[in-house]
Computed example of a mutant assay.
Amino acid sequence: MAFAYLLFESFAYNPIVLGIMILLFIPTIVSINVSAGFISSVVIIMHIYSEANFTLELFLNELTLMAIGFGTGLAVNMYMGDYQKDLERYIDELETIYRSIFSEIVKYLRNGDTSWDGKELIEAENLLNRAKSLAFKDVENHLTRKQNEFYLYFDMRERQFEIIERVLPKITTLPVMVQQAELVADFMEDLAENVHSGNTAKRFREKLEIVKKEFAKMPSPETHEKFLAMASLYQFIEEMDEYLVIKQSYKGIKKKGRKKAITEEL
């Protein structure tokens, strides 16, 4: 309304002035980070333009329209459902899926078990999509939330999942089993049992460094197939280190009904 008053009253109520005002108005609201109000602002500007006479009565009428519109939106948002329980359930389900994937890797490394159908990968992808969508909806429905901790959590898990998808073909198609496979299996079994709060990524990165040192002490490969297997295993543990780095850089969230923040999940 300030823009409309200054420009229309100073110059004229004509399309050229209207166009200039819109061009000046857009960068102004973007610079003060209120671009979400652009549509409602343009509606008010068009009301003033169509009246072609800025009066106190028009000013009060536009204020009333804004109060009704924004007040209704605020009232609706105050009664929007709280998705926190659903988001916490998604966290638990996703952690269960990750544990299952790691357990399948262990079974393959120890027994050469290739019976896994990989359905957990599809489940994880679908769950991540649903969870991120719900987390985004949750933050949009609450005026006081600058960012959504749940969304950041699932984004972190999604980046970890990309690593899992990338390394699985290498670890589950070893040309031959080597001694190092048991070493990696032990680490993955420990990791699978601790995909939950209360276990630090830092601690497991330290364990992974021990695995690397033990890996280096083992005998050199005797055949080309063993060399390829050892190379794939080493690449796998390097990728798992990146998996833990992603978690280590994550600040964590607080889950309802729990005193501790999820700052140490793997």
Score class of each variant (00 low, 15 high):
residue 60 L to S: 06
residue 25 F to K: 10
residue 39 I to D: 01
residue 68 I to H: 01
residue 24 L to A: 08
residue 52 A to K: 15
residue 47 H to K: 13
residue 32 I to G: 04
residue 30 V to D: 14
residue 76 V to C: 07
residue 61 N to G: 04
residue 51 E to T: 15
residue 39 I to L: 11
residue 64 T to N: 06
residue 67 A to W: 06
residue 31 S to T: 08
residue 67 A to P: 04
residue 27 P to G: 06
residue 17 V to L: 14
residue 44 I to S: 12
residue 57 E to S: 12
residue 46 M to P: 04
residue 80 M to S: 06
residue 56 L to A: 11
residue 88 E to Y: 04
residue 48 I to P: 02
residue 37 G to P: 03
residue 55 T to K: 04
residue 37 G to K: 01
residue 61 N to T: 06
residue 73 G to F: 07
residue 65 L to Q: 03
residue 33 N to C: 04
residue 66 M to V: 00
residue 70 F to Q: 02
residue 16 I to C: 13
residue 48 I to S: 08
residue 40 S to T: 15
residue 73 G to V: 09
residue 29 I to F: 05
residue 36 A to H: 09
residue 26 I to G: 05
residue 48 I to E: 01
residue 62 E to Q: 10
residue 66 M to S: 03
residue 58 L to R: 02
residue 30 V to A: 09
residue 62 E to C: 11
residue 52 A to Q: 15
residue 35 S to V: 00
residue 24 L to Q: 09
residue 81 G to K: 12
residue 44 I to E: 07
residue 86 D to K: 10
residue 18 L to D: 08
residue 32 I to M: 09
residue 69 G to M: 01
residue 87 L to P: 01
residue 84 Q to S: 10
residue 74 L to S: 10
residue 44 I to Y: 02
residue 54 F to S: 12
residue 33 N to E: 08
residue 61 N to Y: 12
residue 90 Y to M: 11
residue 75 A to E: 08
residue 90 Y to I: 04
residue 66 M to F: 04
residue 76 V to R: 14
residue 75 A to N: 09
residue 92 D to R: 05
residue 75 A to M: 09
residue 74 L to P: 02
residue 69 G to H: 01
residue 66 M to N: 00
residue 52 A to W: 12
residue 48 I to D: 03
residue 81 G to S: 11
